[in-house]
């Protein structure tokens, strides 16, 4: 790598740290989804629990794809653009919907 390119890179590795933060978040989401599926299938498969199970998996995939897009944006440039509020809201809505699914399952 040339000296100019090395100087351009942020010495605090902010984009990398943010990328890893997204990775950790997907890991937490995975643990959550596994527990949700376990709860859904606990009492034997019925149509209602299978729907809840599929919904939790879809929400998990949604979170994964959001993280994937953001990580792509973070790694594609040295000074990545800020997170958009639509992106943040979508991630939060995935989380909230998982919790609502969970409340329905627990009842």
């Amino acid at each position: 790598m040339s000296e100019a390119a090395a100087a351009e890179r942020d010495p605090g590795l902010q984009p990398e740290r943010t990328r890893l933060a997204w990775r950790r978040t997907t890991l937490s989401g995975t643990v959550c989804a596994v527990l949700a599926v376990k709860t859904a299938l606990h009492g034997g498969p019925t149509p209602a629990t299978l729907v809840a199970c599929a919904l939790c998996c879809a929400l998990w995939l949604g979170l994964l794809s959001l993280a994937h897009h953001r990580i792509r944006a973070l790694t594609s440039s040295d000074t990545p653009a800020a997170l958009t509020s639509r992106h943040a809201t979508a991630a939060v809505l995935c989380t909230v919907a998982t919790a609502v699914c969970g409340a329905a399952l627990v009842f």
Binding site: R17, A21, R24, T25, A82, L83
Partner: peptide, 20 residues
């Protein structure tokens, strides 16, 4: 902005941990 984003993600993980 990136630091703010990481703080947001840390809170989101806290939320996911509570839900889990």
């Amino acid at each position: 902005s990136l630091a703010n984003e990481r703080t947001f993600l840390a809170w989101l993980r806290t939320a996911l941990a509570l839900i889990g």
